[in-house]
Write a protein that binds this DNA or RNA. Structure first.
Lengths: 265, 265
DNA sequence: CGTGCACTTGATAGAACTCAAGACAGGTGG
DNA sequence: CCACCTGTCTTGAGTTCTATCAAGTGCACG
C-alpha cells in the first residue's frame, strides 16, 4: 500500500509493458505513448492475495497492473474455485465501457504486485476518443483479445484433456508474456502454485501435478521454480491446437513490435 | 431467407420479447419502446444450422433474434466442439462497441429462426446515447449480464459435476426465458438435441443422457420432446448452487416486468 | 416401408478425483 | 545454528466419474 518511486528497480521498465502491448494493436502517437507511460506514476504495492475488486462491487476506475500476477475468479458456495483468466504485467483491468458497471467476479493478486491508477486512460478513451484514436483502437482491441482468451479458456476446460489443457495454457501465457517482452523464445516466468493452475484449468492439484510430469517426461515443457521452459514448441502447438490470436498476429510476425527480454524480470 | 410479414403468426408478440427483457434493466421512454418494437420490422427466416457470423468475420451491424435458438461456438481442429452460450428469442447479438470488431467465434442457428436487423439499436446507443438514456443503459446492462452468463458457463464446465452442470444449465435457461415470458413457473421450451447440450456442458452425449435420466429419477427435471419440466426448483437450486443475476433480480421480484406465457411458443 | 436421426442401453476402458502420507523447500523462533 | 513449522510439491493406492464402443429402440419423414 506504500508509495514507491515510479521506477521500481526490480522491473526497470514497467511503464513500457503496456506501451509494447498496445503498440501491437495500433500505431500510437507520441502523446498517446506519453499518456501510457504516465499511468505508472502512481504505483502502489500490494501483497499476494489482496482483493482488487470484489464480486458485485462497482468498478470505480481502471487500473494498470505494473508488476506481479493477478486473476479473476469465482467461488462456489462449497469452496470450489474457478479462475477465469490471469491479469499479467502490462494488463489493464476494471476498464468498463458501461458507467455504473459492477464486477461480475472478484479479482485477486496471486503474487506481490504493483498496480497504478489508470483513470487517465479510461478518461481519454471514454470521453475524448477522437483526440486519442490510437489509444482508443488499442484499448478496444485489447479488450477484444482478452475476451478471446476467455473463450480459449472455455474450450480448454470444456473440450480438452488435461494434457492438452496444460499445454495450451502454457503456450497462451507464453505468448502473452512475449508480447510485452517478459518471456524469451522458450522460457517464461510462471509464478503460480500448482493449486492455482489447477483451479484455472478445472483439474485437481494431484492430477495437474502428474500431467506436468508427463509433459516433462515427453520432453515438452519443464515447469519448475516459478518458471517454465518450453522444450518443443511446435509439438506443443500440435498437441494443444494452439493458434496465435489474429488481431495481433500480423504485426508481431512483421516485427512491428520488437520483442526483447526485460533485463531482470 | 424470404421476407415475412412483421408479425409471425407462430409468435404473436415477438416484438415484445426484447421490450420485456430491456425493461428489467431500465425504465424505457415511449419512443425507446417504439424503437425496440420497430426492430422486428425486417424479419428474415433462417433454417436450422445457418451460420449467422463466422469466426473472424467483421461484425457489420447488430441483429435481433426474434424467434428460434442460436448459439456461439468454436471447433477444435479434430472436430470437438465447445458451445459458449445460447442466443434466445429477444436477444441481440453482434452488437459490439468497438468499430471494426471481428467475431471471436462463430454464431449458428440451432433451430429454424427469425432474425432482423437491429442497426437502429446500435445507431441509437452508439451515436446518440444521450437521446436514448434508457436504451443505452439497458443495452449495456444486457451485455453485462450476458458476460455474467459466460462466466457461469465457465464455472459449470470447470468446477461442477455433470449432475450439477445440467441442473444449473436448465435453471439458467429457465430464468432467461421467464424474463421474456417464454417460460412458465416450472416449464420451459428446450428445443435442443442432447448432442447440443452435451457440447455446451463439456460432456459426452451418452453421459448427458444418463445424467438427464438420473435427474428425472430423482424427481428434479423432466426433459422430453423439446421441453423441460422443473419438478423441484428449490432442490435444483441447492444442487446447482444457482443464483439469479443481481442486475435484474430486484425488478423481477418486485413484479416490475410482468411475466406471462406467450400463447403458442 | 425403408431410411435417417435422435435417443437409449449395456459393457468396458480410461481419465480424473480423493485420500493419505511422505519429501522438500523457505521462513521462524529458540 | 539448528529445530520446527507451514505450505507446496510428490507419490501410491483405490475409487468415482466420464468417455468410448457398439448395438438397439423409437419416431418422423419421404
Amino acid at each position: 500500500m506504500s508509495r514507491l518511486p515510479a521506477i521500481d528497480p526490480e522491473y526497470p521498465d514497467q511503464a513500457e509493458l503496456i506501451v509494447r502491448r498496445f503498440s501491437q494493436f495500433a500505431d500510437l502517437a507520441p502523446d498517446e505513448t506519453e499518456l501510457l507511460r504516465n499511468l505508472s506514476e502512481t504505483p502502489e504495492r500490494l501483497a499476494a492475495g489482496t482483493e482488487l475488486i470484489g464480486q458485485g462491487e462497482r468498478l470505480e476506475h481502471p487500473r494498470l497492473l505494473l508488476a506481479g500476477w493477478a486473476c479473476r475468479q469465482r467461488y462456489l458456495s462449497d469452496g470450489r474455485r474457478q479462475i477465469f483468466d490471469f491479469i499479467l504485467p502490462g494488463d489493464v483491468y476494471g476498464l468498463c465501457l458501461r458507467p455504473q458497471a459492477v464486477a461480475l467476479c472478484s479479482a485477486v493478486t496471486l503474487t506481490r504486485a504493483t498496480i497504478s491508477n489508470a483513470a487517465a486512460l479510461g478518461e481519454a478513451v471514454l470521453t475524448h476518443p477522437d483526440s486519442y484514436p490510437g489509444l482508443t483502437t488499442a484499448t478496444l482491441m485489447s479488450a477484444s483479445t482478452d475476451e478471446g482468451y476467455l473463450l480459449n479458456q472455455m474450450v480448454r476446460i470444456g473440450r480438452q484433456t488435461a494434457y492438452e489443457r496444460v499445454a495450451h495454457f502454457i503456450l497462451e501465457i507464453h505468448y502473452r508474456l512475449r508480447v510485452v517482452g517478459l518471456a524469451s523464445e522458450n522460457w517464461l516466468p510462471l509464478p503460480l502454485t500448482q493449486e492455482i493452475i489447477a483451479d484455472a484449468l478445472g483439474l485437481s492439484i494431484v492430477h495437474l501435478n502428474r500431467t506436468l510430469q508427463q509433459l516433462r517426461r515427453d520432453g515438452l515443457v519443464e515447469v519448475k521454480g516459478g518458471t517454465a521452459r518450453l522444450l518443443d514448441v511446435s509439438q506443443l502447438r500440435n498437441i494443444a491446437d494452439f493458434h496465435v490470436p489474429h488481431v495481433s498476429a500480423r504485426r508481431l510476425e512483421n516485427g512491428g513490435a520488437r520483442i526483447h527480454l526485460a533485463a531482470s524480470a
